Amino acid sequence: MCVYFNASASLRNNNSNPEEFNNCRPGIISSKIIDEFKENEYYLDPDISLQELAGKLNISKHKLSKIIKDEGYDNFYVLINHFRIQKSKILLSKMPNNHVIESVVTESGFKSRSTFYRVFKDSTGLTPKEYICNYELSKAGAPELCKPTFRLK
């Protein structure tokens, strides 16, 4: 028997042997934990830490770190920022013209504008403004997209 992650409880199961958890296919446990992470949008908490997330998921921080790496993320912050950027793309694509990008910064879990812009640009290759421009043009069926801006260092 394999003890699966229960979203509303912990990994504890009164009828199971603790060894059974270790015998489960790692992918099953990993995906259940990542699903719980996504469903509850824990990444939107700007102060979330590895320790706090592990507590919310009822696993040790060492096991969580292993799951994060097994899922293909370099570390906790890469995982958190990946989902924050995905959320920000959704927010940017739905953002009315009269709103400012700064509202997306906080709604996607970032503490600062500068961190948001840096992580967004590193992740997408575009600034948030360029992303919005490309989204609007592609929605309109325009053949040409906005060009990324480059800065000389």
Rank of each mutant, 00 (worst) to 15 (best):
Q51R: 15
N14S: 12
C146Q: 07
E130G: 08
N6H: 08
K139C: 07
S8L: 15
I67N: 08
K69I: 11
I132A: 09
G55F: 07
G109S: 07
F21I: 14
F76L: 03
S103N: 07
K87A: 09
S88P: 03
F150M: 13
F37M: 13
V3E: 05
E107S: 04
V105C: 02
I59A: 04
P143S: 14
D47M: 13
G141C: 05
Y4I: 14
N75R: 04
M95W: 09
K38R: 13
L11E: 14
C133H: 12
K56F: 05
S112K: 15
V78N: 08
K129G: 03
K121Y: 05
F76K: 04
M95T: 01
E52G: 02
I68E: 13
E19S: 10
E36K: 14
R113W: 07
E144N: 03
L91T: 07
P143Q: 14
G141Y: 05
K147S: 06
K153W: 00
V105L: 01
R12P: 00
S112C: 09
N98W: 11
P96R: 09
N15L: 13
K61L: 08
I101Y: 04
S16W: 02
L57F: 05
R12C: 12
S93D: 11
Y4T: 13
H99M: 15
A54L: 11
H99W: 11
T115Y: 08
N58M: 12
V78T: 10
M1S: 09
S49D: 11
V104G: 02
N6A: 03
Y42W: 12
T124S: 14
P148S: 11
S108E: 07
N58A: 14
E136M: 09
P96H: 10
L91C: 11
T115R: 12
T124D: 13
S138R: 09
T127E: 13
E19N: 11
L53E: 10
E36H: 14
H99R: 12
D45C: 07
H62N: 12
N40M: 05
S60P: 01
N6Y: 06
A142G: 01
I85K: 01
K121T: 09
K61E: 15
F76D: 02
N134A: 05
G72S: 02
L92T: 02
L57A: 03
S108L: 07
R84K: 10
M1A: 09
